[in-house]
Amino acid sequence: MTRVHVSDLVKDYSLRSGLRRSRLRAVDHVSLDLVPGRTVALVGESGSGKSTIAKILTRMEKPTSGVVDVRLDDDTPVQGSLYRRQVQMVFQDPFASLNPFHSIEHHIARPLRIHQRTHSPQETHERVLEMLERVNLTPAEDIASRRPHELSGGQRQRVAIARALAPGAQVLIADEPVSMLDVSIRLGVLNLLGRLQREDRLAVLYITHDLATARHFSDEIVVLYRGRVVERGPADAVILDPHHDYTKLLAMAAPDPERVDRVTLTQDGTDRGAIDNSVCFDHFAGEWQEAGVPAARARGEAAARGAS
């Protein structure tokens, strides 16, 4: 079992326009914990920094500052090739995340070979079929020999999930795994992820902009706005009882047929000028905290800002 402790993650991008250089802070002091068997949903609009966090966690980008601490149960830190093996990612676009040149078998066999999970071609092949069956792609033999363009979007996304699990992942970053799929198959893919998570006791970071699936699929929700965490807490609490203006706005904007008589269409409540991302409501602590500052300080100053 592996747990991830992310603290005070900061990522700056330098922008160059002409001779002028400026800095864009994509992620500003974000802290979160991923625990085996639990799903944390990272919710926010595009440009809020969700994908940057995913890239940092999968070590495709280096953070400007902050720590990503991944440890096994016995407290040994996860490093190097073990990190590559344990922290895996499912990408948003199933049409882009599989190499059109290679067969499905290649995509799943490579991680197995790289991390020496199998030792002979025969064993690898059997393992590939096993993985495909785990994600409900049958007949596995047939699917394995196909190439990505011969599969539907949902099938591809399952292949991507199988690939992520192949090296023996313990931490799964799912970056909008269903937003590009047809609506009637989204549920299936999410439920598949859920089942695999229970079987392998994975720690899952579910990145999405869809509040409804975030609520139902995850245990904890972290709302990100302009690089800062503005609200966090148990899924139901955040959605049903939002405190921060931005979360309220998101919850109101999401289509919801349950709502009575389409009231939201008549409200002019989406003025974002007034939204303040310097405070964060923590449902666990039940109090307002300062956002965009080191976690320790935020907690210390929480009391002072509580009233605001």
């Binding site: 990612m89 882009a96 992520a164």
Partner: peptide, 26 residues
């Protein structure tokens, strides 16, 4: 910049293999 290249990096593929096996055929 395609996702499948990122995916093979995430799964721990060595740089030369990424070039030769994932990028070059395309």
């Amino acid at each position: 910049n395609r996702d499948y290249v990122a995916a093979s990096k995430v799964s721990g593929e060595k740089p030369w293999r990424v070039i030769v096996v994932e990028i070059l055929p395309n």
